[in-house]
């Protein structure tokens, strides 16, 4: 395990499975009457969110608190960034106060990588531009694994605005790493210009794909980007690519309906689909906290980075037994 969590590709199948395995322990902690353990006492985590976020930030915040870490809230709109401070200076300033991890979201791809070159702290990517959102992919894998036991051989359709979606990129990488088959369903205008090197199928016919899938993963229609007229009208988009009430009957009885949130009810997902018993959207949110606990613990608490271990002589065996 490395010091940072920047992308799904860095983890590989083993890394993903390690985090999912560890997540089970933290899901148990989350279910306790007092869901708090002292594992990260004294660690300081800073949120560096240059883009709006409710669930990711609150989810990380909850995860950190359940591990007893301290958190520094940093809101770009009310900070020195408005006075023209550069990203690098902001990072150096907050690390000078002593932080062990920086959780960053930024509208530009690659910002988390850049920050790792400036600071000693662990850096966690909470979304960079259209590029990656690794903790979302991990929590989605955990949610699917909870239901099906494994992703091996499962068929997942990722439906909607693939082009602007970091969730789609991270999830495609994670799902295929764990052995699932992925079909992207979107109009041509909402696909990236080139899909070279993407390990997936592509379809423009949602009705043909839906009956064959184990998971229907609906992406948010990014309404703020509709000025570019990538779809003629939202109604037309919904008719072609929304999970409408009629399409619900088309789904298998075991098919999972997923959405990373925030939902545009009535656009990419009908209200009745979001509230359908097959929808696991609130499970995704709950699992998000457990997955983020696992990530924070793995990077900050587990001592899994072998480079920092004390020399063998100075380590006291702590337990008597040798199992």
């Amino acid at each position: 395990m490395t010091k940072h969590l920047l992308s799904i590709d860095d983890l590989g199948r083993d890394g993903i499975e390690e985090i999912l395995e560890l997540t089970k322990s933290f899901a148990e902690v989350s279910a306790r009457r007092i869901p708090k353990v002292p594992a990260l006492r004294g660690k300081n985590i800073a949120w560096l969110f240059y883009e709006d976020s409710t669930r990711t930030r609150l989810s990380f915040e909850t995860a950190a608190k359940r591990l007893s870490a301290d958190t520094m809230n940093f809101s770009v709109s009310s900070s020195s960034v408005n006075k023209g401070e550069s990203l690098r200076d902001t990072c150096l300033t907050i690390t000078a106060m002593g932080v062990d991890a920086i959780v960053v979201r930024h509208r530009s791809a690659g910002v988390p990588w850049q920050i790792t070159k400036w600071v000693d702290a662990s850096v966690i990517n909470a979304g960079d531009g259209w590029h990656e959102h690794p903790t979302q992919a991990l929590l989605d894998c955990f949610t699917i694994q909870q239901r099906f036991g494994s992703l091996e051989g499962r068929h997942v359709a990722i439906v909607g605005d693939i082009k602007h979606s970091r969730v789609a990129r991270s999830n495609l990488a994670a799902f295929t790493a764990l052995g699932a088959e992925v079909t992207l369903v979107a109009p041509q205008t909402l696909l990236p210009p080139s899909l070279e090197g993407w390990n997936c199928k592509v379809s423009h016919d949602l009705d043909a794909v839906l009956p064959t899938v184990d998971v229907a993963y609906m992406l948010r229609m990014q309404l703020e980007r509709q000025k570019q007229a990538l779809v003629p009208t939202l109604r037309e988009y919904t008719a072609g690519y929304g999970l409408t009430e009629q399409r619900l009957d088309n789904l298998g009885s075991e098919t999972m309906i997923m959405h990373p949130g925030p939902m545009n009810r009535g656009v990419e997902i009908a209200p009745s689909a979001a509230d359908d018993p097959r929808a696991v959207i609130t499970n995704q949110v709950a699992n998000g906290v457990s997955v983020r606990m696992a990530v924070l613990f793995l990077l900050l608490g587990s001592g899994g980075d072998l480079g920092t271990l004390p020399e063998p002589e100075s380590v006291q065996p702590d337990d008597g037994d040798a199992r």
Binding site: S25, F26, L40, G301, S302, G303, D318
Partner: peptide, 10 residues
């Protein structure tokens, strides 16, 4: 001894 040696919930 979290942080001093590898500790993992198992």
């Amino acid at each position: 001894d979290i942080g001093l040696r590898p500790v993992m919930p198992e």
